[in-house]
Design a protein around this nucleic acid. Sequence first.
DNA 1: TTGTATGCGTTATCAA
DNA 2: TTGATAACGCATACAA
Lengths: 348, 348
Amino acid sequence: MPAQLPSIVDVARKAGVSIATASRVISSSTYPVSATTREKVLAAAKELKYMPNSLARSLKVQRSKLIAVLVGDNTDPYFAQVARGVEEIANAHGYLTIMCNTERDPARELAYLQTLQDYRADGFIIAGSGLSETDYAEQEQINELVQKIQGRGAAIVTLSPHSIQAPSIQSDNIGGAYELTSYLISLGHRRIAFVTGPAHVTVSELRQQGYTRALADASIPFAPELILTGDFTQAGGERIAATLAQMPVDQRPAAIFASNDETAFGLMNGLRQQGWRLPQDISICGFGDIPMAPMVIPSLTTVSISLRELGRAGARKILSLLQNHQTEPTIEIMPATVIKRDSTIPHP
Amino acid sequence: MPAQLPSIVDVARKAGVSIATASRVISSSTYPVSATTREKVLAAAKELKYMPNSLARSLKVQRSKLIAVLVGDNTDPYFAQVARGVEEIANAHGYLTIMCNTERDPARELAYLQTLQDYRADGFIIAGSGLSETDYAEQEQINELVQKIQGRGAAIVTLSPHSIQAPSIQSDNIGGAYELTSYLISLGHRRIAFVTGPAHVTVSELRQQGYTRALADASIPFAPELILTGDFTQAGGERIAATLAQMPVDQRPAAIFASNDETAFGLMNGLRQQGWRLPQDISICGFGDIPMAPMVIPSLTTVSISLRELGRAGARKILSLLQNHQTEPTIEIMPATVIKRDSTIPHP
DNA sequence: TTGTATGCGTTATCAA
DNA sequence: TTGATAACGCATACAA
């Protein structure tokens, strides 16, 4: 038998004022209320330990102060950092952050969009799971839903390339990969392998573009056999390490650029188990600069994309969109910087 | 000029039925509705692309289907795993998970509790930030708030020792630490150091208890100088490594038990910089078994406490509490198991 | 099986 | 400056 919480009606009664005036002081409206009655209301509220019902308020004012952050997996350091940045800004502005793990599954992404549309979330930050594939089943429904969400005045921002038509803030995947590859080249490496992420994940594809361009700009011929298929996991990296060990010695790459840090860790671990010495036998680098990157031995050369700042920027964008309603799919790029560490050394 | 979304009134009108019947089929109530009218309503809803307003529903039925998960920092792998487990179960049961980073600050914890009480969250999972200190300023307010939350039928569960009086599910910190210490002893070590967490963090204190008991049971005298003060961070571990290197050789520990994995990583890194060889010069182990633990070299011996399962258990507990209203501060213990890896070797 | 009407707790409009 | 009341969108007790 749960007890009822006092409502604003109780506060008004106890203070001996109308429910309207009670509401005015509680909601700290700009509407004029005399100092004395304000005090009375405040006193009554405190005495009753009144706590406003945000659901009722949200229903009435048509904004929930809820922000959904859709991530592939909140356990992944990449998404964790982004989500943290979002929560930081959101919380500072009185918004709540709802964590949605889509598992990079469009069906789950759609389901969460739907659920949070039902809750009338004010903002949606799509942090990942951007698939380049243009024909997955949910595509159409998602786009339609996005339209409705924007139509009712809610804001959507994507933080990676995505089929969703909405403003986007992205880290400089191409530029970062270009710089990193160029750095490897400057170290004297020419046979540089690239490990992709899961199929159709756009950030991986963009990084590959940067890699390809850097090679081209250095007039290094592209070698298809040096493109290895990973999946953004450590296990995937280890699998590739096994493959690498099978390659004829003269075909082996002198350096490997893994499209994310986890994969690089898997590579390091796997290669070491095969008896390779790091970084003497091969230079390895990753992408993302997750917290563990400086900790491993040898410390990992990688690209820092300031995930937390990306999350902050996304949240700020949501807040500004909520002010001046805009839906054009503009795109802002956040800088990425190469972090040189010990896992990459000059070519012998 | 945001467009209005269709309401159930529109659906009812379009279907040519009363609001009540429309509501019955939309909310899939058990209330009998003829097949034909049901079809009409469904058709109207689909045509209007109707999406129910969860805020209104929540306000009416007095349950929000919101679960708050209070963590110290969602970026910390410990909390990330727990939160993932919570979200997994919550989502499967139609609940939304709200991420609250308290930064281990009681003031922020209180603020979030308050905010989510305002949103009438159905469940609160306090995953961390349990302080053993009994006299921080917010103590009283938090307890009072907890009473009100439980009083209105919402559920609270803590996942670590906490001053909050509520059902709790905890991993076996004492037992795990006891087993781990015993394992070190079985390897022949006698001078075993213990690195604490931040002051007053209870999980750290419990782990220390396990450590102390294991020593006592093995009749190894307790050496106060072997208790080192850490803070659960890598940087803290590195700091301690520097201290360790200063110690007279004959006073140095043969093994170190760091109260969490991050600290152990910091130790490993710091000691290596001082020229120590691992694990030959010293055995190191941690607590938590975060994803990185098997990846570092040497792989880290630690205690696995199945964080994700802890999160799941917490969420399940919330769901069951929502059924049979209970507030007694019972406590369930989840097993912890020692994971033996390469960072610990027999004493020479 | 369907419909009417009330209320969940707010805010906002209008009149006083 | 204050107050009565409608409305936000939905679910349900009660009537029919």
